[in-house]
Design a protein around this nucleic acid. Structure first.
Lengths: 156, 156
DNA sequence: AAAAATTAATTGCATATACAACTAATTTTT
DNA sequence: AAAAATTAGTTGTATATGCAATTAATTTTT
């Protein structure tokens, strides 16, 4: 059978997928090689917390663009690793405020130069203009697919 | 605490992550809304099989750039959904050849116009030049981070 | 031919993700 | 104040992913 989706190769989709897959693998590996026991996702959460400590889980889920169930389990993992703590609100017992721990702050700080170096590696040989253009295109993509998220698949 | 990773926003990394996340969500949702019961990953596998039917699992894992354990479980799911079948080799009983089923071929064919429309949506308002430039940058990224990875599961 | 090494695939354990259904707490209605 | 609706978070079930260890089959050594 011939490749019924051959045209796809001229679109950004498969290349985005491949690049992301490569980056994910590289970053995880790079962190590990540097002795940084953090996943990319955990780093994202820590970074958000460093700017917005003590958020209710649901807020955090929103900021991290993740499902609240996903966040629940992420926080489980991160609490187990002593990166964050849950603190039940006294005003509203339903709410868990999530705080970054000392240990979490330490790891985040340690991550900074490692992330910096990893990014340099990833963007090696790519010009400033190319980076800016690419970011601009990526923003357009996000806008395209997020804009009418709620109604999107219906109108086509 | 100030954002110790604020610089990151000027790199492609977070924008790539956000765009991919948005795309993944959009595609899954779009497929579902179109009544296409396939995940993105399953479509990738079907596409590879349509070009290379009857591959041993391990080969397929290589072509799909996935771990062989990941492939094992993917094939479990896809076999359950009657998209593919495992056929033990007579020459070497360790090997499972993976074949796309009639049903799988049907879904793949049905997917073609849907994928096409989804991609149009995703790339809406982005010029041909921008797409080409972006693909070129994405290829550079993959090259940068794959260079000595696994001796590069490249082209395709 | 028997022992050792290699290979293909699977299973155990772990992370990450999301929808649906649920529990418990709070707020809004009546 | 009691009933109804809403809200925050968790649990069940599902997909996807990968490393380490295992099993079973084949090939290579001795």
């Amino acid at each position: 059978m011939k490749d019924v989706l051959a045209d796809l190769e001229n679109t950004m989709l498969p290349w985005l997928g491949r690049a992301m897959k490569s980056i994910d693998f590289f970053v995880l590996d790079y962190f590990h090689a540097c002795g940084l026991e953090l996943t990319k996702t955990q780093l994202i959460i820590l970074r958000i917390l460093s700017k917005n400590d003590g958020q209710p889980q649901q807020n955090l889920a929103f900021l991290a663009k993740r499902d609240k169930t996903s966040l629940t389990r992420l926080i489980n993992t991160m609490e187990r690793k002593k990166l964050v703590t849950r603190v039940q609100s006294k005003d509203d017992k339903r709410i868990n405020h999530i705080y970054i721990t000392q240990n979490g702050q330490g790891l985040l700080k340690a991550a900074v130069p490692i992330v910096k170096k990893a990014v340099e590696e990833i963007q090696k040989g790519i010009t400033k203009e190319e980076i800016e253009q690419t970011i601009s295109v990526l923003k357009k993509i996000s806008k395209n697919v997020n804009a009418d998220e709620l109604t999107a698949p219906l109108n086509h």
